[in-house]
Nucleic acid binder design. Structure first.
Lengths: 121, 121
DNA sequence: CTCCTCGTCAACCTGTTGGTTGACAACGAG
DNA sequence: CTCGTTGTCAACCAACAGGTTGACGAGGAG
């Protein structure tokens, strides 16, 4: 799962991690403060933060022995762009439905094979 | 990973699955046609489709022994809503940065503890 | 009826994830 | 200097994800 888009989606696939992101939109926080509401060890939260950091969603600075966690909201744009692109494409397709049906019929043996393009990642 | 939002994010965390979604924005397709470009077995693609279906991103109908796969674009809204909500919150926060810094300073021992709300999922 | 195609199900294997506990580095406070 | 706090690292474990192969059901074509 090398590409960033995959890492971002994977990071947000976990409810705890999503909740952490949600709380970070309000204010930066230390690892301990972030861990407090959850019923897991601080180490587990530290791991979650590593996942978020590897995805580029979060950054950590240094303040004595504390490590304040900061949300990097720009990465959201990466997702939004991907989603919007294909959502728009899907809507456009919806408006030329007949063409689609025609294509499926002519698919008898030469199976298009070159509908490819865009291709995520 | 019970909630749908988690399932949707997890489904899109895989490049192959994202590519399948991308191709389905162009036209519905059969499992075989979808599998053809990838260097994996048809069974593997069948599994990917199950993941997408469980996430509500895709539906399958019946046409003789074929199972045309159809994109359900509405689910995109679920993600978009989540993302936009917290993106906006993050931007709003950015505009009152001083308040944030003040809060981090007063965090000495009573650690806010009630910043909770929204909470994903 | 028999065969071939399309797709799913089941069993299995390997790598990754999310959690645990224990040790330890960094650093301010006494 | 020593202690308590904050957080990470390492080892370990159970569960899950993504892939494989083999068998099989459903249905059109001969």
């Amino acid at each position: 799962m090398t590409d960033q888009l995959s890492r971002v989606f994977a990071a947000l696939a976990d409810p705890t991690r999503r909740d952490i992101v949600a709380r970070l939109t309000v204010a930066d926080a230390t690892v301990g403060a972030l861990a407090e509401p959850y019923d897991v060890s601080v180490q587990a939260v530290s791991k979650h933060l590593k996942v978020l950091e590897d995805a580029g969603l979060v950054s950590r600075s240094r303040d004595a022995q504390r490590r304040p966690v900061h949300l990097e909201a720009e990465v959201f744009d990466l997702m939004t762009k991907w989603i919007e692109r294909y959502r728009r494409q899907a809507e456009e397709r919806f408006s030329r439905l007949d063409a689609v049906l025609a294509e499926m019929d002519s698919d008898t043996d030469h199976r298009s094979g070159s509908t490819r393009e865009g291709t995520a990642s």
